[in-house]
């Protein structure tokens, strides 16, 4: 599935990467499209991918049992879905359900793990970018907790 085609890999997460690192990304990336209602991942499943979204909307949600399904965030163009592939035990913490057809660059997380372990410069660049994603998601979650419309 990887296309190896760096011309087609365009996403804010990858801005500023060197050609060498882009080639490494391209070696384990491919474009894909997902239809409404499809699950990109389910809670507890093995997390082996990241999705760099270029169109559509993906809901991050959890089935709260008696509370029903709760959506806590939606991701769209320019967002990134998936950082569970980075950290052990590499399992998804949320369900990712397509609300509007999603177009995304899919990254093979297992291949990325191997490459970042072998090339620490690459690993640093990658973790810097994913840390920013995690940071902004954390900030949004904190604001939701603060109940800012109360």
């Amino acid at each position: 599935m990887p296309t190896g085609d760096i011309e087609r890999i365009d996403h804010p997460l990858l801005e500023g990467l060197s050609d060498t690192h882009m080639e490494m990304i391209a070696s384990c990336a491919w474009g894909d499209r997902f239809e409404t209602g499809e699950y990109l991942f389910r809670v507890g499943e093995s997390a082996t991918r990241a999705y760099l979204i270029s169109a559509g909307r993906l809901a991050l949600e959890l089935d709260g049992g008696g509370r029903g399904v709760v959506q806590i965030a939606t991701l769209r163009e320019s967002d990134v879905a998936g950082f569970s592939w980075i950290f052990p035990p590499h399992r998804w913490k949320w369900d990712g359900r397509v609300v509007e057809p999603v177009e995304a660059i899919v990254l093979d997380g297992e291949a990325l793990r191997t490459m970042k372990a072998a090339d620490h410069d690459f690993g640093y660049e990658l973790l810097l970018r994913f840390s920013a994603v995690i940071g902004s998601r954390l900030q949004a979650a904190r604001m939701q907790l603060m109940d800012v419309y109360a």
Binding site: R57, A59, L60, E61, G68, V69, V70, Q71, I72, A73, T74, R76, R97, V99, E100, A140, M143, Q144, D147, V148, Y149
Partner: peptide, 17 residues
């Protein structure tokens, strides 16, 4: 909206997003 059930089809997240 900050949070929603699965019938909501719009964005979920704080307004700053």
């Amino acid at each position: 909206v900050d949070t929603a059930g699965d019938t909501w089809r719009g964005p979920v997240g704080v307004v700053t997003r």
